[in-house]
Amino acid sequence: MSSRSLFLAVLLREFKISLTQKTDIATIFFFFLIVASLFPFAVGPDTGSLRTVGPGVVWVAALLSSLLALHRMFEGDFIDGSLEQFLLSGEPLVLIVVSKIFAHWLFTTLPIVILSPFVGMQFGISSEASWIMALTLLIGTPVLSLIGSVGAALTLGVRSGAALTALLILPLYIPVLIFGVGGTVAALQGVETTGHFSILLAFLCLSLALCPLATSAALKIALE
């Protein structure tokens, strides 16, 4: 079975399953919206202070939403035994994992990235900088999903899994957060942002190369 058709088969399967779990995806979407709109109540409505806080808030909200959605990645297939069948499929598990991570990002985190410019404008961020923020999120959130997948796989079937995943994964999110927000702030200040984007892309390549390996190894351990 060619790797392309395997990738698409897993993607199609995830799509069908996601169609039946629309409420899950909606809750994550609105979680992002709610977390982002909490801050004006905390920081005060004047756009001056909101603008300085804005990029950080949007990024932290996106990061927390991605973290919240992580359990959806493998838990369902782990509990009902589908993961075992994948292991026996004779197809490379790493490729199945990559496809599942991509599907997870596509269905839960991409909507957030699309929504983010509008939330950004709510924080008084200029439309031009908001689009750059959306671009940093477009490159950054897949890295969050990739790193998060390792945590999700490690804590499969472990009690207090969700809190534990957050504890394991959040420290690893820090570099992405730094350069994601850094890029947006640079855009706000009209400073050159290519440096930030090149580092974010470097993170993407590094995590694309390493995380699926760690995740499939962790899945095999969970299924022992």
């Binding site: 069908k16 009902d80 589908s82 197809e91 199945i96």
Partner: peptide, 29 residues
């Protein structure tokens, strides 16, 4: 070469039997 039937039936509750088999068999080639 292995067919394994464990305690779990590897079926998604909110899909029909047909959709379940199409989904899982397509992934297993």
């Amino acid at each position: 070469l292995v067919n394994y039937l464990g305690h779990f039936d590897a079926l998604k509750g909110n899909l029909t039997a047909e959709e379940n088999l199409i989904a899982s068999l397509s992934v297993m080639g």
